[in-house]
């Protein structure tokens, strides 16, 4: 049987969506409460990692393929850079918070910090995708005991 036992699989099926949702929540409220792009991105990645552990790599990769993850990785970084550069066009300097200047929101509201939320989303995408990639790539190699010696086997 591929993956872990039935109990783990069932529980994973129930909670994977909630973990993903929690990740999105952490990303979106990064400017109001503890958390932010990096922490949220790690949680997003961990939902996929849980899927990998419970069902095996194929299932997780069918949801988010390596190519897709690599594209998302680049897109996240480019998004971050684009917003920063837009600050140069719209606000006059690199990294200027131009949204907050033109539409200052009320404090402690979701739409109150201007660009910060956009930065958090970009970072969340990048960290989530790249951490998942790291896990998949490193887990392509498995150490097994063979004739009393450790041996590494590369999965394809």
């Amino acid at each position: 049987m591929k993956g872990m036992s039935l109990i783990v699989k069932t529980v994973t099926r129930w909670i994977k969506g909630f973990i993903f949702l929690f990740g999105i929540y952490i990303v979106l409220t990064g400017h109001l409460s503890p958390g932010g792009g990096f922490a949220g991105g790690v949680i997003l990645a961990s939902s996929f990692i849980l899927l990998t552990l419970a069902f095996g790599k194929e299932v997780a990769l069918s949801k988010l393929s390596k190519n897709m993850a690599s594209e998302l990785d680049s897109i996240g970084a480019l998004m971050f850079l684009t917003i920063a550069l837009l600050g140069m066009c719209c606000g006059g300097a690199f990294f200027v918070n131009f949204l907050h200047r033109s539409h200052p929101g009320e404090a402690f509201r979701l739409l109150s910090a201007g660009n910060i939320m956009l930065y958090n989303i970009a970072i969340g995408i990048k960290v989530g995708a790249s951490l998942f990639m790291v896990f998949v790539i490193i887990s392509a190699i498995k150490v097994v005991l063979k004739d009393d010696a450790m041996k590494m086997i590369r999965h394809k």
């Binding site: 680049s74 970084a77 480019l78 850079l81 920063a84 690199f94």
Partner: peptide, 13 residues
């Protein structure tokens, strides 16, 4: 800083 960073991520895309 921005130009090399941008092209570093544009190239693999």
């Amino acid at each position: 800083v921005a130009i090399p960073l941008a092209s570093a991520f544009l190239i693999p895309m």
